[in-house]
Design a binder for these strands. Structure first.
Lengths: 120, 120
DNA sequence: TCTAGTGTTCTATCCAACTAATACACTAGT
DNA sequence: ACTAGTGTATTAGTTGGATAGAACACTAGA
């Protein structure tokens, strides 16, 4: 996995795991790879993975069990809420940043339609 | 000015100046505050401002003149292109991130409409 | 020519993120 | 009991961003 500069790796790992969960590649209740395996896969240090998983545990997105492993929270509703939260979060950041450029709601709407058309 | 953690301050200063230019609060050809004044205004170190301005200069968004000051590039077309580039950039990041959550173009469109409605 | 205002450079220090290597603590199966 | 696999913690070292303070280099006007 390739990481962007200027954004802490442990945050990018969190995002990666969010994605795996929301897309159901890591289903509710599923066991995550061990911190050591993840570190190998992502070519980062164990401590960096540890930090990411630890925060995900604090957020109740995964359940971290000493000696057993880490597991996606086994609750479809929580996962659904997470997905919605991530989606709205992305849209809000975009909207707020465009607002800072003095774009009106109508202008934002216009640019969005244009962009989506280009993806047709 | 308040800065976010996890994002280098000099990058946030760049974004801030982008905004000032694109919104015409800093018109083409206008003189920017000195690095020392900017550092005071933003409550950061001179060197941090220096780094931001230096990069903006490399990008030809401003013209940095030793002994005179820094000036917004005096070319309406360049400013216009900058604005478009920033807008498309914001939208692209949002779109790509939502795609990573396995959302289809139609789903993205749906969530966007919903969000914009809520801002009516 | 002097001076105030500007950008530029340098040295030193601090801190968070990251790495490396190792050890510790717990769990489950044999 | 032992062992393999797991999360957790510690100590040490590197790097990039940010700070502080000072000096240098250039410009324009008095």
């Amino acid at each position: 996995m390739k990481f962007k500069d200027n954004i802490p790796i442990y945050l990018q790992i969190k995002d990666y795991i969010y994605q795996e969960i929301v897309t159901n590649r890591l289903a509710p209740g599923a066991k995550l790879p061990s911190v050591r395996d993840l570190a190998l896969d992502l070519s980062v240090n164990t401590n960096t993975v540890q930090r990411a998983l630890s925060e995900l545990g604090d957020e109740n997105v995964i359940e971290v069990q000493r000696g057993r492993g880490s597991f996606v929270v086994d609750d479809q509703k929580i996962v659904g809420n997470l997905k919605k939260k991530l989606i709205i979060g992305e849209i809000k950041v975009m909207y707020d940043n465009l607002t800072k450029l003095d774009l009106s709601k109508e202008e934002i709407s216009y640019y969005l339609e244009n962009y989506l058309e280009g993806r047709a």
